[in-house]
Design a protein around this nucleic acid. Structure first.
Lengths: 235, 235
DNA sequence: CGCGAAGTTGAGAGAGGTCAACTCCGGTGG
DNA sequence: CCACCGGAGTTGACCTCTCTCAACTTCGCG
């Protein structure tokens, strides 16, 4: 990070939340933006049908609430205990961005990261099968927590219910898939919230849609397999 | 738009594409960004399993390819004939953004719009049922094309196959839902690509998840129904 | 007119949602 | 220290929705 960071941090207020606490409500309009320091935050909405949907999980180092002066569309809540958040006054950030191109660029990059994450998630949600979505979720989480191919345990910073709402499926299905993966030796669950990935390749393999390849692919022709870790950005 | 617009447009190259033409391939790295002038563009990826997934549709006025200097993650293709695109050299845009806060702000806003669209789509994809997803898709499209509650026909700028890949479902299901809506008098199909929405309320109503409300909602408590047209922004 | 692509319709099967029972775990209070 | 309690997680049985496969119709274009 640039020295600008210091200016940011001088204005930060640190707040601590417990599991389930609301950071801000949907439709509220406080003028702050935030950074996750520890724990995890879920961004959620409720469909008009009454179902909760989780749009994103914010992990340590992620920024959120940066946007515009419009009202919040989603509610943000801590999804685990001991979640700490740094809060910055948004107007100051905006002024800083206007006066210092480096800050503006940082914000653009943060926005890119956000778009990247959303588009990746879009692909995960599009995966037809429950198993594929769970596997993709685990890999994504492991990547974001920097547990690449290490033997270390991943501590899931959310409940099964959260995972279900995030992947748009029933809790029971999440549970079933996890047990199945456990029985196959792909993952090891030392406790309900701790996963160790034993077979990365199997997990990766499971992300591939196993359905038949539609013949329409031939028609449009020009699509090439997407590779992880790179991105485009559309606005 | 600000006078800055002129500087943008002076550098624009206009290009025309026919249905199915590739604007850029995934994994290529040309240094341009683009704006849709007419027609429609689909942003697509292919899952490792060989299934095509459409991540976004870009309509007139939408910007894309703005991001970073990293390689493109998706392929972009025209989804209808007579699609025209304005192309701008990205390095220039970046320099302009660094020197003029107004440009930087515009780009931030464009990024916000993109995030807004993606998050909305996230919610649509999360809708469990095919009918809900199609209804939400139609409403979203109508909104973006500015056909709010007008009697005018919406010209669908994409095939059923595209819609299917966008909503992560089978073409047959898309077709079935559309006929069902037609038979119920909710929509009128004057041709295969022209939809007139007859009953906006019915369409809106169908976006509500009809499944049972999960009891877990009581537990977390703080979620409030999300309202369309407002947004939060996370990075 | 004829061809291929796009779209529709039908029948069957499988994946996942729903409902319900049950177990596991952490916290609280006697 | 143990019993109890509630929420979280798991497992099973059933049933619905949608994907699949296949046949057919419609549309657009040479």
């Amino acid at each position: 990070m640039l020295p600008v960071q210091t200016a940011f941090e001088a204005l930060a207020t640190h707040v601590r939340f417990e599991h389930g606490d609301s950071i801000y409500q949907s439709a509220s309009s406080e003028d702050f933006c935030y950074r996750v320091l520890s724990g995890a935050v879920r961004k959620c909405a409720v469909t008009s049908g009454g179902h909760r949907r989780i749009v994103d999980f914010l992990l340590p180092h992620d920024l959120f609430g940066l946007g515009e002066d419009r009202r919040h569309r989603f509610a943000l809540e801590a999804s685990v205990n001991d979640t700490t958040i740094a809060r910055y006054p948004r107007s100051f950030i905006e002024r800083l961005a206007d006066s210092d191109p480096r800050v503006a660029r940082q914000i653009r990059e943060a926005a890119c990261a956000s778009i990247d994450r959303l588009e990746g998630r879009m692909l995960i949600l599009g995966l037809g099968r429950a198993r594929e979505r769970v596997c993709a979720f685990l890999l994504d989480l492991a990547g974001r927590l920097d547990h690449r191919r290490s033997e270390a345990e991943i501590c899931l910073p959310m409940s099964r219910y959260d995972i279900a709402d995030y992947l748009a499926m029933a809790v029971e299905t999440v549970s079933r898939v996890l047990t199945q993966l456990r029985l196959e030796g792909v993952i090891y669950l030392s406790s309900q919230r701790s996963v160790r990935i034993c077979d990365w390749d199997a997990l990766q393999w499971n992300c591939a849609a196993t359905r038949s390849v539609s013949p329409r692919l031939r028609a449009s022709g020009s699509c090439i397999a997407a590779s992880r870790g790179t991105m485009a950005y559309s606005a």
